[in-house]
């Protein structure tokens, strides 16, 4: 199979105006991935599936990644007065939710090609086009991403919660999810758990045993 960079160049060459970017991967054997713009996401997916050299007919894995807003610090060489100095500056990287697809070809037996798409932010602008019309394999996994991350998939035939119950309002796989505090008594040496139990213990609630029975 071609490298992701070659595929990216070919997509951009074939149809004008598509936003596809090649993201590096730091792992030793890692392949780069393609970051696709939201507006042309399904178009690119159909291209990848139908292109005779690629024929990526099998979408293996769909998953979400949560990137909360973070501040990145970096050093810049600046002229400070007379001398040139390394000055530490910071910039805020806005948060987003990302959906990652791993594509393989069953007919040509190659892969994987990793494509990813990002939402605008983490609260209001959370919709991306669904790829279930392209690969049905995405159906249940996109529902899972919707349930656990809160990404809204436009064009999904049956977008409901899959793992949690229907009345549940949170998205538990987000990094800032706070789980319900139902740790009443934790006989473990983990400090944070002990602290939580300590904060809950009220004076006068002495006594052990497994309750009234």
């Amino acid at each position: 199979m071609e490298t992701p960079q070659q595929i990216r160049d070919r997509i951009v060459g074939a149809v004008a105006g598509l936003q596809v970017e090649c993201l590096p991967n730091g792992a030793p054997a890692g392949v780069p991935s393609l970051l696709v713009g939201r507006s042309c996401f399904r178009e690119v997916a159909i291209f990848l599936r139908d292109d005779p050299q690629l024929r990526l007919d099998y979408c293996s894995n769909v998953t979400g990644v949560d990137w909360p807003e973070r501040t990145e610090k970096f050093k810049v060489r600046r002229q400070v007065g007379e001398v040139e100095k390394d000055v530490e500056e910071s910039r805020v990287i806005p948060g987003c939710l990302e959906v990652v697809y791993h594509l393989y070809s069953m007919s040509l037996k190659h892969g994987p090609l990793v494509i990813r798409v990002r939402t605008g932010d983490r609260s209001a602008d959370v919709s991306v086009p669904s790829l279930t019309p392209v690969w049905r394999a995405c159906e249940l996994q996109e529902r899972e991403v919707f349930d656990l991350f809160g990404v809204h998939f436009d064009g999904h035939p049956d977008l409901r919660r899959i793992l949690m119950w229907d009345g549940f309002v949170d998205h538990p796989m987000r990094r800032d999810y706070v789980e319900p505090d139902d740790y009443d008594y934790e006989p473990t040496p983990h400090d944070h758990v002990l602290d939580r139990a300590l904060a809950r213990a009220k004076p006068g609630e002495a006594g052990c045993g497994s309750g009234a029975r």
């Binding site: 991967n25 730091g26 792992a27 054997a29 890692g30 293996s60 894995n61 990652v100 994987p112």
Partner: peptide, 17 residues
């Protein structure tokens, strides 16, 4: 970095991302 490892488990493709 990131990686995706998959094997042929008895039930099908088991992958870890």
């Amino acid at each position: 970095g990131e990686s995706y490892g998959r094997i042929e488990a008895p039930k099908g493709e088991l992958g870890f991302y």
